[in-house]
Design a protein around this nucleic acid. Structure first.
Lengths: 351, 351
DNA sequence: AGCCGGAAATGGAACGTTCCAATACCCGCC
DNA sequence: GGCGGGTATTGGAACGTTCCATTTCCGGCT
């Protein structure tokens, strides 16, 4: 097969390029580029012709090539630790909306809560040359975050990190834990246990908040912290552990909603009723907590707002409007539902 | 400021390049490229040197540049219609794992269930030049899917589409609906209503399956279809509507788990008990259905498996191993829990 | 008619890779 | 000691854009 003489084989495989458009519209590639980017200084006649050619050829700009020369991608990389937790649905929603408004595209990723996989997910986003990184409750080591910071702007959501290089948006976990404990204490509970989030993001701060609140309320001698996880299973196991203690605390503050639900299951299996026998408080106020059948009292944090704010922080950095870290802390609120009530009388007497 | 004479300013802004590595290791860029891609035919000495240089410089290959020349990205674009529905958590999980195994990276996107936004999300993935596209229960028009097919391989998950150009992986919604109806009929129900998924993906087929099963069981005269949606709210509104009918059907087959939960809420508000007064069946068998407090009988479809299979289909196409469409249909199963039971006696007598 | 200035249009270099054809190197053998 | 043949290495072109410096165009003014 003799090769065509000199004529560029007008890219057959992957769509038409800017050159095909230029040829068709009988102008230079530069002019096509100007039209695409909406620059002015193009004569109406030519603009028209280019637009028509683009339409006719079904041309789609190649962002890959564009990114290469612009040395930016206009992409925000987002690593979500847990896609099964509906809380992150809110967060993602907020991120997406705000990014869209500000002219960036968003790409998600997950490591399914496994630190090694999360690390790989982050690495993947770095290789793609995202302009900035949002980490939603990452399980990875601070060192990984620091390393990423050296390459691009990073915002950490919903996790307290000692990494000083990144921005962060969190809710005030100390205050949130206080809300939970104070609510329970206000109902008359004195023995309040905490099933924590194990090594999950934010777990240690909520634990700390719990301990401090108990102390402050003069219940320091009654603290009981049980290891759990931010999963249904974690809450279930934690509650099973809880059931072994004696005298049995009359209330549980769980690390988050999902684990609270796990705890509820364990309690029910043991024949205990909520809130008559044991009160339970969750955290996140996800759609799950609101479900009528569950109706879980929960600490509300503003997922979508966190997402939006995270995007704003990131873009400030990307566009060089700021270079010092920004740490936003939002105040959570308490939503009371029917999983909490006064402690049982007999047990109270027993105490 | 006089510009340095001829010496390349060793890229200061965005990280080191392959050239920096080559310079440092005192070899050619081609050789560095070979090492990076793990080709053999490189002397141990040089491989060593290159590896060290990469390490020292903290070099990270630029996939943007690589993609440009390779004319492929090794990326699968995934558009998820609803990140709040835990069912898709499973799907994503399956996609991610299989893609990883096969050497592709995965990028997610969502349009938050809004057709226009989903369209934009898909467009975004196309512009990024993903090698293939997975659409999970997309809400967009078939025409959009057809258009995408002309550019790259597409797999549609969990939605019946008339687009013939794409592959698809679905569960057999007809069979699933049958399972639900037969289960209820087997318990003695004769008046079984269906709260459907409105215009959502797969809704019409499940409706069809419901109607056919009712017919087949000789209950054709008792069908009642109510418009709903694949959301908690949709199920709630549907059930409110349902409550107006008389005589009241004794069972509801809801379009999916979330809407079933909404329906449960409406029923409970109306003072009806499940399953004593009304039995309810959901679809998807999400983690929600399994929650002890909800314990919803549900049609199980294999989300993670669907995801995995979708990836396989896609990659077959990408790698040119197949060019005819493949349509996989999985048989769903029924998971019986405590939201279903025999119909109430008195109502039965009334019928 | 020639000149000038601004607007419009253009060609070439660059972005950081991969790929390929061409070259350099090395070793043993006649 | 030159030659053959394989292995190792290399430079240049290409990928599809943007950006910039230059060139072309055109109308009005002297």
């Amino acid at each position: 097969m003799p090769k065509p003489n000199g004529v560029k084989p007008t890219s057959s495989q992957s769509g038409p390029t800017i050159l095909d458009v230029a040829r068709k519209a009988r102008v230079s590639k530069s002019l096509v580029s100007m039209v695409i980017r909406g620059e002015d200084g193009v004569s109406p006649k030519n603009r028209e012709a280019v637009l028509k050619a683009i339409e006719d050829l079904n041309y789609r700009p190649n962002v890959i090539a564009r990114s290469l020369v612009e040395r930016r991608t206009r992409m925000l990389g987002v690593m979500i630790s847990d896609l099964r937790n509906p809380f992150f649905g809110d967060v993602v929603s907020g991120i997406q909306m705000r990014a869209e408004e500000l002219g960036y595209r968003v790409l998600f990723n997950t490591g399914d809560c496994v630190p090694k996989l999360e690390e790989a997910a982050i690495e993947s986003l770095l290789e793609l040359r995202a302009d900035g990184l949002i980490l939603a409750a990452p399980r990875v080591d601070d060192a990984i975050i620091e390393r990423a910071c050296r390459v691009l702007p990073v915002v950490v959501l919903n996790r307290d990190t000692s990494a000083t290089c990144s921005d962060s948006v969190t809710n005030d976990n100390i205050a949130g834990a206080s809300l939970a404990v104070e609510h329970l204490a206000g109902l008359g509970h004195t023995r309040i246990a905490h099933i924590d989030g194990g090594s999950g993001a934010g777990a240690s701060v909520r634990r700390e908040g719990y301990l401090r609140a108990m102390q402050r309320l003069g219940l320091g001698h009654n603290t009981l912290t049980i290891e759990g996880a931010f999963t249904e299973e974690g809450g279930y196991r934690g509650a099973r552990e809880f059931l072994k203690s004696s005298p049995l605390p009359t209330a549980i503050f769980a690390a988050n909603d999902i684990s609270a639900i796990g705890a509820l299951r364990a309690l029910e299996e043991a024949g205990l009723h909520t809130p008559t026998d044991v009160s339970v408080v969750g955290y996140d106020n996800t759609s799950l907590a609101a479900l009528h059948q569950i109706s879980l009292t929960s600490v509300h944090q503003f997922g979508a707002d966190n997402g939006r704010l995270g995007v704003e922080c990131l873009i400030e950095r990307i566009e060089g409007k700021r270079s010092t870290p920004r740490h936003e802390v939002h105040a959570p609120t308490l939503v009371v539902r029917s999983s909490t009530g006064p402690p049982p009388r007999n047990l109270k007497a027993l105490a």
